[in-house]
Write a protein that binds this DNA or RNA. Structure first.
Length: 483
RNA sequence: GGCCCCGUCGUCUAGUGGCCUAGGACUCUGGCUUCUCAAGCCAGCUACGCGGGUUCGAAUCCCGUCGGGGCUACCA
């Protein structure tokens, strides 16, 4: 029996979680669930200048909303916590000291300005940039002298000669010559840890077995492995690495706000279903292998394996997300569609939250379910039911003023006024009978004026159903007003 | 510049040497249906970056090339 799979998602919340982050989180989660392992959610907030509590809370909310539940992490705790790196500073300090004692790391007194100058020089000389090891072998006396000069020190990891080779399950064997992996900083001059230290220490301490993360971290893997070595971890205990391809915006450009919408909370506010976002994102860099693309979260868990993840980057295409979301909305049961819609409307504050309004929406939902793409379209479609009179849209005003139009409206009025039972069948019978059969009008010609008079727009849910929902009085009133 | 990764329709992908005259989905175009809008149905457009090998045979393997991306921080 092999050991339990433990996967972590470890974002650094320097902003709203975007679709790229979430694609990674989704794969992490799906892999953990697929294997029956544990999903760990860790917040990498070692850079307190950029990470804020608000973003951390936002990340937690987004994960919950998407249904990516975690076994260990914020709010739920776990045996290897805390799961916020800012609460683990003593752990990193202890390991940094150990590395210093072992001579794996050393104090470096070079100032940022000196390092900048060094980089300039290297660039000019066309050399590989990187720390030149100036402070590698400082004597105690030299260190004291630097301190007396008022210099502060960072802790730097010593990178031995040689190379680091490892197998990335998505990319195969990857190797880095240490000539291109300079000594790197573990601890800032102010004593705070850097990602390079924290990520490796935590992955070891939290017993992470599989690191599935963005491809941008591929070239930092040798540094992470270097820390494992200093921690005394055996090679067979290194986690399995899998570097996921990027999710990109249009034109091959990196995903960013300028390049289409990226934040998951934006998609939430637009009325996308969380499972649509997950489903769509799952298709970026992974596929179920057959022709079925619309899958549930459970199917994703069942089908997800890392060997079906491929190595090339994917473009985020909002059009396909739309199509998937529309499909998923159509597939909702009427009860569920109502519950989701109403929750969304209330959450976004689009319509006042009371029982009467909810009932109006509930009555409308069945006739608009197959014609909306996102939940935020509901209020506009429902508008005609919430007002006493409608405003006729600009583009239809000319048509509505024509004599022929007035004639149709008058004829329709004559037919519906005497109706005792106000239902779809009766409305359709009398209106078709008079306008189509008696007058020989084409349906589209005959019904357009009524539609516009009643809903204000030439585009609406099905006419007779809409009239039923509106009620006889308001229909008569609106048609009369258009005469 | 150096190091690393990547390269199938416009986009997401299937494809692991013969089943590929390259399949599906989204988009787009045309048509059918139709009370509008949708939905549904049918049809069409469009791809293995390029050049060399290896092989009886290559989208699939190798080399080169070109193109894209990442890293090169006291960010992650």
């Amino acid at each position: 029996m092999s050991k339990e799979v433990r996967v972590r998602f470890a974002p650094s919340p320097t902003g709203d979680l975007h679709v790229g982050n979430i694609r990674t989180a989704l794969f992490d989660w799906a892999y953990a669930r697929h294997t029956g392992g544990k999903f760990i959610f860790r917040i990498e907030d070692t850079d307190r200048e950029r990470v804020t509590d608000q973003y951390i809370q936002g990340a937690i909310d987004t994960m919950k909303w998407l249904g990516l539940d975690w076994d260990e992490g914020p709010e739920v705790g776990g045996p290897h916590g805390p799961y916020l790196q800012s609460q683990r500073l003593d752990i990193y300090a202890k390991w940094a000291q150990t590395f210093l004692d072992q001579k794996d790391a050393y104090y470096c007194f070079c100032t940022p300005e000196e390092l900048e100058a060094l980089r300039e020089e290297q660039k000019k000389a066309n050399q590989a940039p990187g720390y030149n090891g100036k402070c590698r072998n400082l004597t105690l006396e030299q260190q004291t002298e630097f301190k007396n000069q008022g210099r502060s020190a960072v802790i730097r990891m010593r990178m031995p000669e040689g190379e680091t080779k490892f197998v990335d399950v998505i990319r195969g064997e990857v190797s880095f010559d240490h000539k291109f992996v300079p000594d790197f900083v573990l601890v800032r001059a102010d004593g705070s840890p850097l990602y390079t230290l924290a990520v490796a220490v935590d992955d070891v301490l939290m017993k992470v077995t599989h690191v599935l993360r963005g491809e941008d971290l591929l070239s930092s893997t040798p540094r992470q492995i270097r820390v494992y070595q200093a921690m005394g971890v055996q090679e067979e205990d290194y986690p399995v690495f899998a570097h996921l391809p990027f999710v990109m915006g249009k034109d091959n450009a990196k995903l960013s706000k300028r390049n289409g919408e990226v934040s998951v909370s934006w998609y939430r506010a637009q009325g996308y279903l969380p499972e649509s976002i997950c489903n769509y994102l799952a298709l970026l860099g992974w596929s179920p292998g057959d022709d079925k693309e619309n899958i549930s979260m459970q199917e994703l868990v069942n089908l997800f394996t890392v060997d079906r993840v491929h190595a090339s980057p994917a473009r985020f295409d909002p059009k396909k997300l739309d199509a998937l979301n529309a499909d998923k909305i159509r597939a909702l049961s009427s009860e569920e569609f109502l519950e989701r819609s109403w929750n969304y409307i209330v959450e976004q504050n689009l319509i006042e939250n009371n029982q009467g309004n909810k009932e109006i929406i509930a009555s409308l939902l069945p006739i608009i379910q197959e014609r909306i793409v996102t939940l935020n379209e509901i209020p506009a479609m429902a508008n005609f039911l919430f007002v006493e009179q409608v405003e006729i849209e600009e583009e239809s005003k000319e048509m509505m003023s024509k004599v022929e139009t007035k004639e149709i409206l008058q004829a329709a009025l004559n037919q519906i006024k005497p109706l005792n039972t106000w239902d779809k069948e009766n409305l359709e019978n009398v209106l078709r009978g008079e306008l189509i059969e008696n007058r020989g009008l084409k349906p589209r010609i005959a019904f357009a004026p009524i539609r516009i008079a009643v809903t204000g727009s030439h585009i609406s849910p099905p006419l007779f159903e809409s009239m039923v929902l509106l009620g006889k009085d308001r229909c008569i009133s609106r048609i009369s007003k258009s005469l």
